[in-house]
Amino acid sequence: MSRVPFYLKERLEALRERVLREEFEASKLPPWERVVLTWAVLMTFWVVVSGSFSANNLALGAVVTLIIAAFMRDLLTEDIRRSGNIIEKLIYFAFIYLPQYLVIMAFRLLESNLKVAKNVIFMDINPGIVKIKTDLHSDTGVTILANSITLTPGTLTLDVKKKLDGTYLYIHWIDLETLNREKAGEKIKGDIEEWLKKVFW
């Protein structure tokens, strides 16, 4: 596709965008599952924050959060990858995926704290801004990936650009090691991207 005329190029871009959009529509969860997931999250938050277990309180919270979940069902859950049964997926998420992520991020956070302390004492910094590519497309996935990159040692997300073939992230790196895009991506993202690809699309 090296020598495409310019009038065809715009048409091709529009077609590719439409294919991506249809794929996005097909990979959503069904509506009642979205309502149930949003309702569960809101109900947990209500119970924890209100802090009492009387029947009045629980009934009020259930009704109000059900109304909110029926209207706001796309807000939290539109980026979750569709696969399998919902109960099975919830059990997998709560007992396998989430503890895995928490353990990975806890050790990364510890390491990054020690590294910042070392940098503060010795001032051996060599900063640079590099550009890496990820395969995630959804908003929630890219947000969680950017937040995780900010918390991993020595890196800080500066900007996010969405293109059609992937998402590009600009990273401020406090101790520049390589300029190659694949090697830098391998070093910065680590295994968080593999984890995120299982849950979000």
Binding site: L109, S112, V116, A117, N119, M123, I125, P127, L156, H172
Partner: peptide, 19 residues
Amino acid sequence: RFPDVYTRLHAATKCDTGG
């Protein structure tokens, strides 16, 4: 101690969250 805004953001974010 750090010289410019971005390196200060490194120190602020990571150390505040971890601490």
